[in-house]
C-alpha cells in the first residue's frame, strides 16, 4: 500500500496563550488558545487584519510569536531551535494564498521541494531525490490531476492548477497537519470550490487535521467542520458552521464592516518577480 494513503492518527495541535505583537506595535494576536484534534478541518474566519495569517504563520514559526506556546502532539514547537524547528516543519504542510510556487521551477521540482526537509543539500542541489520520493510525487500529481504537467514550468499553469501543485507540495511532506492560508483568494468561484473540495478530500483520505484561513463565509460554512472567528487578534467564536448566525457574523466582522463579504484580495505584484534590469537600472549601476 502506498505510504501517503495510510491515515495518520497523530497530528493534534494545541495553542496556549499565543500572542503576537509586531515591532511596529500592532497587536496581531492576543492570548489565543485553541485545540485541534487529529483529522479535524477547522476554518478560521475574520476581517482583514484580524490576525488570521499571523496565527497560521506562528504555528510553523514563519512568524515568531511574542508569547504563548504551540504543541504538535507532544512536541513544543515554540521551544525548538533551528534544526528541530526544520524537522517539525516537515510535519506541517502549508498551502498559500497566491500559491507561492517557485514560478521558474518545473511542477515536479515544486512538488519535490516538499521533500527538502528530508534530503541532504547535495541531493537537492543536483535534483537527485530518492526513487520513493519521485514515485510518490508522481502519485500526488495524479491525485490532483496534473500528471501531464510534471515537466512544465509552474508559471505556465492556470491559477487553479497552480494551487493544486501547492497542495501536492504540501502533501509531499507527508504531513500530520495542513496549514492553509486563504487558498482561494485569487481564484474564481468555481475553481475555489474545486480547491476547497480537494483539500477536504485529501484531509479525509489521510486523516489530516487542517487549519484553513478563509475570507469567504459561504465557503467556510460549506466545507469546514468547525469554525473559529477572530476579531482583532482574539477568538470571538468557536463552534460548528451552523452556528454562524447574522448576530455572530456581526460580532466577528463588526457592525460597520458587515454587509457584502470582503472581496478577494488580488495581488498583481505576484507575477512581477525580479526581471532583467532595464536601461535605467543599468545607467544607475555604470
Amino acid at each position: 500500500m502506498p505510504p501517503t494513503v495510510s491515515p495518520t492518527t497523530a497530528g493534534s495541535l494545541r495553542l496556549v496563550g499565543l500572542t503576537k505583537r509586531y515591532r511596529t506595535g500592532d497587536q496581531a494576536l492576543s492570548d489565543v488558545t485553541l485545540e485541534v484534534p487529529p483529522g479535524q478541518v477547522l476554518g478560521l474566519i475574520g476581517p482583514s487584519g484580524a490576525g488570521k495569517s499571523t496565527l497560521i504563520r506562528c504555528i510553523n514559526r514563519l512568524v515568531e510569536p511574542s508569547a504563548g506556546r504551540v504543541f504538535l502532539d507532544e512536541t513544543e514547537i515554540t521551544a525548538l531551535h533551528a534544526g528541530g524547528l526544520r524537522r517539525a516543519r516537515r510535519r506541517m504542510g502549508m498551502i498559500f494564498q497566491e500559491y507561492a510556487l517557485v514560478e521558474r521551477l518545473t511542477v515536479m521540482e515544486n512538488v519535490l521541494s516538499g521533500r527538502l526537509g528530508y534530503v541532504s543539500f547535495w541531493r537537492s542541489l543536483f535534483r537527485r531525490f530518492p526513487p520513493r520520493d519521485i514515485e510518490n510525487a508522481f502519485r500526488l500529481l495524479e491525485r490532483v490531476g496534473l500528471t501531464e504537467h510534471a515537466d512544465k514550468r509552474a508559471d505556465a499553469l492556470s491559477g487553479g492548477q497552480r494551487q493544486r501543485v501547492g497542495i501536492a507540495r504540501a502533501l509531499a511532506q507527508e504531513p500530520e497537519l495542513l496549514l492553509v492560508d486563504e487558498p482561494t483568494a485569487s481564484l474564481d468561484p468555481k475553481t475555489s470550490r474545486q480547491i476547497m473540495r480537494l483539500i477536504r478530500e485529501v484531509c479525509a483520505e489521510r486523516g489530516l487535521a487542517a487549519i484553513v484561513n478563509i475570507h469567504d463565509v459561504a465557503l467556510a460554512q460549506q466545507f469546514m467542520m468547525r469554525i473559529v472567528g477572530l476579531r482583532a487578534g482574539r477568538v470571538v467564536y468557536d463552534g460548528p458552521p451552523e452556528g454562524l448566525t447574522p448576530a455572530v457574523l456581526t460580532e466577528i466582522y463588526g457592525e460597520e464592516d458587515w454587509g457584502p463579504l470582503k472581496p478577494a484580495q488580488t495581488d498583481e505584484e505576484a507575477d512581477d518577480a525580479a526581471g532583467i534590469p532595464d536601461d535605467q537600472d543599468i545607467a544607475r549601476a555604470l
Binding site: M1, P2, V5, P7, P131, R132, I134, E135, F138, R139, E142, R143, E201, A204, E205, R206, G207
Partner: peptide, 11 residues
C-alpha cells in the same frame, strides 16, 4: 478514507 488504485509510476 478512500483508497487509490494506483498504477506504477517512474521512480
Amino acid at each position: 478514507p478512500r483508497r487509490h488504485q494506483s498504477r506504477d509510476w517512474p521512480s
